Computed example of a mutant assay.
Amino acid sequence: MATDVLQRYCEKIKHELFQSVLPFWDRHSVDNEFGGFFACLDVDGDRYDDRKFMWLNGRQIYMYATICGAYTASELSELSTDRLSREKLLKDALNAAKFMYAHGVREGKVFFSLTREGEPYHFERKIFSACFLSLGLGSLGAVLKQDGRIDEGEGLVAKSLLLLKLIIGWSHDPSSLGREVCEGAPKTSPMNVPMILLNILDELQVKGAISVESAMAADIDVKQEEEWCVAEIMKHVRSNEQRVLEVVLADGSLWRRR
């Protein structure tokens, strides 16, 4: 019975993805003039903001790459009434990857959002814009390599690794992001940082973008970073209380405001 229920949900999700979500994105989110994806769309697909957000573009590049890595052109066409083109999804993802990296990464900074034409609009002193771009670039690079487009794929993976190395440095030392350390603020451990870093390390390996060996060649010790992420996450777990805390002090103790 439970298996039947799960199967029905899987079919429902697949139907929604291929009959509704992907066709909507394909029709309305792609900027065919400059590259990249629009995210501020109303129910009819009309844009109410032309800005391009790094985290949303990174996620959409990742999503397109994941779909194209899992389905052949004919399978994708059969799943969608709009007859989605695998070739077009890859082309749009690659254009977005090139646009967002070229305009959104400057002098070790990864911008949160850009204008439609690619001018930096907003910068946050956090790791997440870089995280989603690294994940998208690496995943797309792996699919292109699978398709025999070796040079393009390896170029994207190399950019993904460069970002990953920056992300790891920022995760261990947030002050390198330029965030001011105030004297009265305690040193804390936010759980979202090790969680997303662990996710990126895992996904890039699952997608075939990186291996332990290739990461080591880029001076990234995957095993060591994964162990650090798990140790940091476990600081937040209170098993005896059956709860997980969002923020604790750096040593794992409870943060109490004075």
Rank of each mutant, 00 (worst) to 15 (best):
R149S: 09
D151E: 15
Q146K: 15
I167Q: 01
F112D: 01
H122C: 13
G138W: 00
E119V: 12
S129E: 10
F111Y: 06
V157T: 06
K145R: 15
R116N: 14
K159S: 08
L156D: 04
V105H: 01
Q146N: 11
G148K: 09
E124I: 07
A142L: 01
E117R: 13
G138Y: 01
D173Y: 10
E154T: 10
G136Y: 03
F99W: 05
F132D: 03
V105M: 07
G138E: 03
K109W: 10
G141I: 14
L177Y: 04
S134R: 01
F99L: 04
E107R: 11
W170P: 02
E152W: 08
E180A: 13
F112T: 03
G118W: 01
P174L: 07
Q146T: 14
H172Y: 09
A142Y: 13
H103D: 10
P120F: 06
I127K: 02
L156F: 10
F123A: 07
S160W: 00
V143L: 11
L166Q: 15
V105L: 01
K126C: 06
K159H: 08
R125D: 03
F112K: 00
R149Y: 11
L162C: 11
I150D: 15
D173C: 08
V110A: 07
A102T: 13
A96K: 00
G104I: 02
Y101Q: 04
F111I: 01
K126E: 15
G155R: 10
A96W: 02
E152T: 09
H122W: 13
L114H: 00
W170H: 12
P120W: 06
C131R: 05
V105P: 00
A130M: 05
L163T: 08
K109I: 12
K159L: 09
E117L: 12
S139K: 13
I168Q: 06
S175C: 09
A97I: 02
C131F: 04
G108I: 11
H122R: 14
C131E: 06
R149I: 13
E119R: 14
D147M: 08
S139I: 03
S129T: 08
G108Q: 05
G108Y: 05
E180Q: 13
L140W: 05
S134A: 15
E152K: 07
A130H: 02
K98V: 13
G108R: 09
V143F: 00
